[in-house]
C-alpha cells in the first residue's frame, strides 16, 4: 500500500458503494471494545469474544479500526489474506475452522506486513467511514469493533458512523493498575459524552498463577477494574487472569476457546461473552 501516495490496494473510489446500500442492515448487534490505555487486551478480548460467541452458535464479524497497529489478523492467523471486491463492496476475510467469522482490518490492505500507516486524522477518518459503509458483512448476530487506545479521531469517527446502526454498546477493558484505570476513567467520560451505552468493564491481566508453585502474583496489582466499575456505576463483567496459554494461542492464531477449556482464563472469557449475549437478548 503506497502510504504516502494516493491509492491503497483495492481502495478505489470508483468502486465505492453508495451508503444507502446499507451493508450493516443485516447486523443485529454492534459491540465496541474500547480502552483509554494501550496494550491492555482490547484485541485479545475482541478475538476471544468473537470465538466464544461463535461457539455459542452466533454469526460473528470483527471490524478492526486500529489503523496504525492492527493485531487481529495475526491473532486469527489470517495475516496473509487479502480482501476482494464484490458488487456490494469489500468482501471480509472469513476465519476459523468453518470460515464463520468475518473479519475486516487494514492489515489486509497493506502490501508488506511491516508497512507503517503514517496517516493523520482525516485519512484515518475516511477509511473508517469506508469500513463502516462498504464492507459486505451479510447477516451477522454480532459485529465486534476493535479500536485503538485513546479518545480521538478513530473513536469519534467510528461512533459517528455507527450511530445510525444497531449499536448495543461498549465494553471497556483495563488492567488493574491505577495508571491504566486512570485512562479508562477518561474513556468512560468519552462514552458518556458520545451517548454510548456502557455494557461493562473487564479487568484483564489480573493476577498470574505461577505454573511451578501455584503462587498467585498480582503483577499489575488487583481490583482496579472492579473498583472503577463501582465508582462509575457500570456493570463489572469480570477479571481475566494473566494466562501464558492465552498469550501463546493468540501468538499462534489458535482457537483458545476450543483448545484450552481447562485454562484459568477460559471461564472468565466465556462468562463475559454470556453476559453480552444476555444483554443482547434483553435488548431485542
Amino acid at each position: 500500500m503506497a502510504l504516502w501516495g494516493p491509492s491503497p490496494r483495492g481502495y478505489s473510489m470508483a468502486l465505492c458503494t453508495p451508503a444507502d446500500r446499507a451493508n450493516l442492515a443485516g447486523v443485529r448487534h454492534i459491540v465496541l471494545v474500547l480502552s483509554g490505555k494501550g496494550g491492555v487486551g482490547k484485541s485479545t478480548l475482541s478475538t476471544e469474544l468473537a470465538l466464544a460467541l461463535r461457539h455459542a452458535g452466533k454469526r460473528v464479524g470483527i471490524l478492526d479500526v486500529d489503523l496504525c497497529g492492527p493485531s487481529i489478523p495475526r491473532m486469527l492467523r489470517v495475516q496473509d489474506s487479502a480482501v476482494h471486491q464484490c458488487d456490494s463492496g469489500w468482501v471480509p476475510v472469513f476465519v476459523g475452522q468453518d470460515k464463520a467469522i468475518a473479519l475486516m482490518s487494514i492489515g489486509f490492505l497493506l502490501e508488506r506486513p511491516d508497512d507503517a500507516v503514517v496517516w493523520r486524522g482525516p485519512k484515518k477518518n475516511a477509511l473508517i467511514k469506508q469500513f463502516v459503509t462498504d464492507v459486505a458483512w451479510g447477516e451477522l448476530d454480532f459485529l465486534i469493533v476493535d479500536t485503538p487506545p485513546g479518545t480521538s479521531d478513530e473513536h469519534i469517527s467510528t461512533v459517528e458512523a455507527l450511530r445510525p446502526h444497531q449499536l448495543l454498546g461498549a465494553v471497556l477493558v483495563t488492567t488493574p493498575q491505577a495508571v491504566s484505570v486512570g485512562d479508562v476513567r477518561r474513556e468512560l467520560t468519552f462514552c458518556r459524552k458520545a451517548g454510548l451505552h456502557i455494557l461493562g468493564i473487564v479487568e484483564n491481566m489480573s493476577g498470574f498463577v505461577c505454573p511451578h508453585c501455584s503462587e498467585c502474583t498480582n503483577i499489575f496489582s488487583k481490583g482496579g477494574g472492579e473498583e472503577l466499575a463501582k465508582h462509575a456505576g457500570v456493570p463489572f463483567l469480570g477479571c481475566v487472569p494473566l494466562d501464558p496459554q492465552l498469550s501463546q494461542s493468540l501468538e499462534e492464531g489458535r482457537d483458545f476457546i476450543q483448545e484450552f477449556p481447562k485454562s484459568s482464563a477460559f471461564p472468565a472469557l466465556t462468562h463475559i461473552a454470556q453476559q453480552i449475549l444476555d444483554t443482547s437478548q434483553r435488548s431485542s
Binding site: F208, C210, H212, C213, E215, T217, P244, Q248, E251
Partner: peptide, 16 residues
C-alpha cells in the same frame, strides 16, 4: 517473570 516464591522464570508474554 521470576516468581517471587519459587524463583522459577515464566514467559508470560512468550517471544514466539
Amino acid at each position: 517473570f521470576v516468581c517471587p516464591k519459587c524463583k522459577n522464570e515464566s514467559q508470560i508474554f512468550p517471544p514466539t
